[in-house]
Computed example of a mutant assay.
Amino acid sequence: MPVSLNRRQTLLGLGAIGAASAFAAPALARAQRNLAVLHLGSHAPSFIAWERGYFKDAGIDLNLQFFEAAQPMAVAIASGDADFGVTAMTGGLISLAQKDAVKVIGGALIERPGSPGSVILASNKAYDDGLTDPSKLEGRSFGITTAGSSFHFMAHKIAQATGQDLAKIDLRPLQKLGSLVGALSTGQIDAWAIQPSIAAKLLADGTVKQIGTIAEMAPNYQVTTAFTSTKNASGEPELVKAFVAAYSRAISDYNAAFIDRTADQAEIDALAAIVHKYVETDSQADVAKANLIAGAQRINEGLAMAVDSIVEQLEWYKSEGMVDPSVTRDQLIDTSFVKTV
């Protein structure tokens, strides 16, 4: 049975495709819902679906709720403050899944060789000092938001792929993306891995150097997932199906414009303008659009889920002692709403 957690219990837990069918819309419209998002280009389908009314078409009265990092998004969904989120796997999310509070119901960003993906960067200072390749990270500092974050897992995959000891890489938890950007730009940390839209801006500013890609280190890594509360997944499956359908429409728009380049220029311009309302708002529109195009990363059509990658991440968190070793894949994921890949 799903467990209803209040905010305090949730915080304690952290410590240890086309439109929906028309007949479903009236039933889903009875309550306002929240979608947890970050001010990142990877969340472009969230902004596209909201601005183009895809959620309304699916019968969902939904607002965007902004966060600074992935783990608080899982807290919000478990406590009922938000209904859906699309972000990276974290130890906190897994712990909440074990408490029957959240479920991963889809996959979003994926690292695929040959497609744009996350970029490994070095500060100019570190690069000039010899950090010209990811295999030279031992003895260097690498930025992460928090222990157990996707950045932590990326550091593990880099170390694994290059035969380095992760324990010899100085992981620096700086909590917020803005702090990581600032620290890398000023040489306070030596390296970081980040999605290409942010990397493109840093590279254009001339404050960093690219030394590799995550796709080289971790092919088919499911970077972000879609998740909801266990209560929604088990008690309101039509709501979850409607969300997946609406979000999938936006993914198709995004991939056509920025990845597959099958959309016309007017459509590309229109979508870039939507995303610019939420991402790189301090940049000129043409600059933001160029960064969005240069930094676009493939998102799984229909929120298809790379199950093997998700399970690999689960097992890594368990092996590192960041989650209870007894947590199972069935507690974490529900594959009934999307295709698996």
Results as ranks from 00 to 15, higher is better:
271 L>A: 02
237 P>V: 14
215 A>D: 10
102 V>Y: 06
299 I>N: 12
331 Q>P: 05
98 Q>M: 13
277 K>D: 03
318 K>R: 11
312 E>V: 08
39 H>I: 03
134 P>Y: 01
172 R>V: 14
231 K>T: 14
97 A>V: 04
19 A>Q: 11
208 V>M: 08
226 A>S: 12
16 A>P: 14
37 V>N: 01
224 T>G: 01
126 A>Q: 06
279 V>H: 04
99 K>N: 12
128 D>A: 15
150 S>R: 12
171 L>R: 12
329 R>V: 15
172 R>S: 14
14 L>N: 12
9 Q>R: 11
194 I>Y: 07
149 S>N: 02
245 A>M: 08
176 K>E: 13
9 Q>P: 10
5 L>N: 09
70 A>Q: 05
104 V>E: 05
145 T>N: 07
79 S>C: 09
237 P>W: 05
283 S>V: 13
117 G>C: 04
274 I>P: 06
5 L>P: 10
177 L>A: 13
105 I>K: 09
30 R>Q: 13
165 D>A: 09
240 V>C: 08
135 S>E: 07
338 V>A: 00
16 A>S: 15
115 S>V: 04
192 W>H: 08
325 P>F: 03
79 S>H: 00
276 H>E: 02
93 L>E: 03
148 G>L: 09
3 V>F: 12
215 A>P: 10
264 D>V: 00
2 P>G: 11
259 I>A: 00
196 P>Q: 12
334 D>Y: 01
24 A>Y: 11
279 V>Y: 01
27 A>N: 07
303 L>R: 01
102 V>M: 10
277 K>Q: 04
197 S>T: 15
123 S>Y: 06
44 A>G: 04
26 P>V: 13
59 G>M: 01
91 G>Q: 11
53 G>K: 00
235 G>H: 09
48 I>Y: 06
56 K>Y: 06
282 D>F: 09
331 Q>T: 07
239 L>I: 04
141 S>H: 04
54 Y>P: 06
117 G>I: 11
38 L>Y: 01
103 K>F: 03
48 I>K: 00
